[in-house]
Design a binder for these strands. Sequence first.
DNA 1: ATGGCAGGAAGCTCCTGA
Length: 261
Amino acid sequence: MKSALKLATWNVNSLKVRLEQLLDWIGSGAPEVICLQETKLDDPKFPVEDIQDAGYQVVFSGQKTYNGVAIASRVAGADIVRGIPGFADEQKRVIAATIGTLRVINVYVPNGQSVNSDKYRYKLDWLSALSGWLGQQLKQYAEVAVLGDFNIAPEPRDVHDPKAWEGQVLFSQPERAAFKAMIDLGLVDSFRLFDQPEKAFTWWDYRLNAFPRGMGLRIDHILLSSALAQRCRGVSIIKDMRALDRPSDHAPVVADIADAV
DNA sequence: ATGGCAGGAAGCTCCTGA
């Protein structure tokens, strides 16, 4: 008999700094699959042994200082893909693995900096390339989960002050259109399958005391193909982890997936 | 209009993040 499966995404903002928090989480009933972003570690410095000693397997694609992604899982992943196939990119932002029957795609979407910047153009080009590849993956696999830091708030209710943020990076129309394009491939924003609290966010700026003041955005997402969405029993934000000492500025998001019938 | 905070690399300051 199989048991239910939990999938998580967490932008750690430096795995070196957040390693103890990750190990504590793993040691207290963490999800079976955890996608990490902004590890900020070159591959030779990745803490493989610490994570293995805690009972998880891990695959990763990293670089010094910026970016870096990893998938930690109880069961080892297979068919690992690093980066978006066919899209040349120095930045380590994507890693995918097949875990059991699940295709898990972990993404760290570019931030975009500001809507008039070269980085914003790169973000939109990057999202276009991602969508193309996701379309292929959805044809190849029935059970696809795309998890990560999308750096896009899809709707006004995902933004603490939508008027102030309208047109700004993370909430501009082209970014939201790029998000919708991924949904239109046949993916579901799993968080919105369920009733959720008001002001449900996943990121709060370190500055201005934003977290206690509730000034956040929902930019970390778990998108599921219909086969998985049908089996999704709940999605929640682990807000407590944003309240730890020396927290990441992102809280994890967890989706609970029931067994196949 | 700007800065606020945090992390990293470098090095006593800057870049980036979101």
